[in-house]
Structures are given as structure tokens and as C-alpha cells.
């Protein structure tokens, strides 16, 4: 914690960054994001197990960009989100400083190559409760799984907190806001909920960094993060690629390869 505050203070003092995006204590035991702009404020920065938000979500926001070059307090999922965003041309080299956290240490990373190296040597397994939940779902019959998601997703009232929490949901116009044609119905009825969540899972396929922020953000505790995590794990198994590992990544699902099987074409 002190190391983090120290690094943040130095980054501001040496003008390596104009604003530190980090975590601080909020009310009711919840953590909230903080935007530290002066060295004196750095002591408000903190880091603990409750810091589950993915702060990478802020770097593309215009109001944050106005503050100047940011330094991002980054546990592994945040760092992976940064790399994935870079691979999708949303961040340029040098636009961002990262204060990477691991094992209580703080590492300052400014080059993408350093970030890739850091990520490569850090294990990326899922939290055990998520892993167990996915295994539980895998063991179900398709009918049971259908039932499960039916009952979970029916509760959704489309607050879109999941979308807001996701660093990969950065479109300037989301599909749900597209009304010519109206792809996703606006009201929160079961069919529309299904459509929204399936579409979200498909849009994150091959891109999800498995941070779980969407699930944490859900006010109804619907475990929607399991959908994207499961798809991500399947892609990792089938194609060997993992989102948020490399800037020049081969996007598993959106790379045309001549070797791709075309046996569906007669």
C-alpha cells in the first residue's frame, strides 16, 4: 500500500502522469475509483481484495482523457484489459502509465512490451469460486443449463451496469441503442434479456479478460461473468489464444486465415 502511494506520488511529481486512477475506500465497505491529481492526495490510494472494479474502463472516457496522461493502478485483469484495448487500437503506446500490482509489489510499466512481459509471467487462472461455478455448469445437461440461465436472466432489469463496468464495452454507440433496426428490444422482458446477454457474450468472445467486473457490478448478483469467462476458456482451449496477452494478437475469432476450414461451402 505504501509502495503504491509512493510510486503514485513520484509519478505525479516527476510529471510522468497527470492523474492516477486508483482505488480508495468508499462508503459501506465498498471500494470506489479515485482520480488523484496532486501528490498530496496519493495517500488516499489503497489496494485490497475488495478492489474488483476494472479501472481500465475509465481510460477511454472523454472526461478522464481531459485530465491528461493517466497512470493506472493495475492488478492483473486491469493490465490485461489495457493490452486488449491496445490490440484493438484504443490506446497508443505512451498514452498511459501502468502501476502494476502483484504480490504486494508495484511495478511501473510504460511500454507495451514491458506489460506483455509482465502478463506473460503472471498466472492467469480464474478465481476458484468462478472456476467451480463453471465446472458446475459444465456438468449440467443442456436442459438443466437452460433452466438455470432462464431463471437467472429473467431477473435482469437491463440497468446495463454490466456494460458500464466492462472495459471492453467502449463502443460510442452500443448495439442496444441501435433502433434502425431495433436489434435488442428495450423493455426488460425475458426474450429481450436473453438477446442482450447472448449478444454481450458474443461480442466479448475472444476479447474478455475474465476480470469478473460485470458480475460484481450486477445489482441482482446474476453471475453473467460466467458466460464470458466460459467462452474465453473455450477459445483458449480451442485456439490457444487468450485475450489481453499481446498487443499484436491474432484475434482468434476475427482473423481470416486461408487454412480455416471451408468445408461448409460446397
Amino acid at each position: 500500500m505504501e509502495a503504491l502511494q509512493k510510486s503514485a506520488r513520484e509519478a505525479l511529481e516527476n510529471h510522468k502522469a497527470k492523474v492516477i486512477i486508483g482505488y480508495s475506500e468508499g462508503s459501506g465497505g465498498r471500494m470506489r475509483p479515485i482520480f488523484v491529481q496532486s501528490p498530496a492526495e496519493a495517500e488516499k490510494l489503497t489496494w485490497n481484495d475488495r478492489c474488483t472494479q476494472n479501472l481500465a474502463v475509465y481510460i477511454a472516457k472523454p472526461e478522464v482523457q481531459k485530465l491528461g496522461k493517466p497512470a493506472l493502478v493495475a492488478p492483473l485483469p486491469v493490465l490485461r484489459a489495457v493490452l486488449q484495448l491496445a490490440s484493438e487500437n484504443q490506446i497508443k503506446e505512451g498514452d498511459l502509465l501502468v502501476l502494476a500490482l502483484s504480490d504486494g509489489r508495484v511495478t511501473e510499466l510504460s511500454q507495451f512490451s514491458e506489460m506483455e512481459e509482465f502478463v506473460a509471467k503472471t498466472p492467469t487462472h480464474l478465481a476458484s469460486k468462478d472456476q467451480e461455478a463453471i465446472e458446475r455448469l459444465e456438468k449440467m445437461t443442456p436442459q438443466e443449463r437452460w433452466q438455470y440461465w432462464q431463471s437467472e436472466l429473467t431477473r435482469c432489469f437491463k440497468c446495463y451496469a454490466c456494460r458500464a463496468a466492462c472495459p471492453m464495452c467502449y463502443c460510442s454507440r452500443c448495439t442496444v441503442e441501435c433502433n434502425q433496426p431495433q436489434w435488442i428490444p428495450v423493455p426488460a422482458h425475458p426474450l429481450g434479456n436473453w438477446e442482450w446477454h447472448l449478444m454481450r457474450a458474443m461480442h466479448l468472445a475472444g476479447r474478455c479478460v475474465s476480470c469478473g467486473a460485470c458480475g460484481d457490478a450486477c445489482p441482482l448478483d446474476i453471475p453473467i461473468h460466467l458466460l464470458t469467462m466460459k467462452v474465453e476458456a473455450d477459445i483458449h482451449r480451442e485456439f490457444g489464444s487468450q485475450a489481453g496477452m499481446k498487443v499484436q494478437s491474432e484475434h482468434a475469432l476475427s482473423s481470416f486465415k486461408v487454412q480455416d476450414k471451408e468445408n461448409f461451402i460446397i
Binding site: N89, Q90, Y170, S172, R173, E250, S254, F256
Partner: peptide
Amino acid sequence: PLYSTCVGCFLCQSACP
């Protein structure tokens, strides 16, 4: 100020045969 709803992720670029 949007000019296009395209956000420039360029995933279409690698997908195009």
C-alpha cells in the same frame, strides 16, 4: 462530433479475406 459510429477497433481488418 461522432463522424461515424465506427470506434476503430479494426477487428474487421483481420477478418476480411
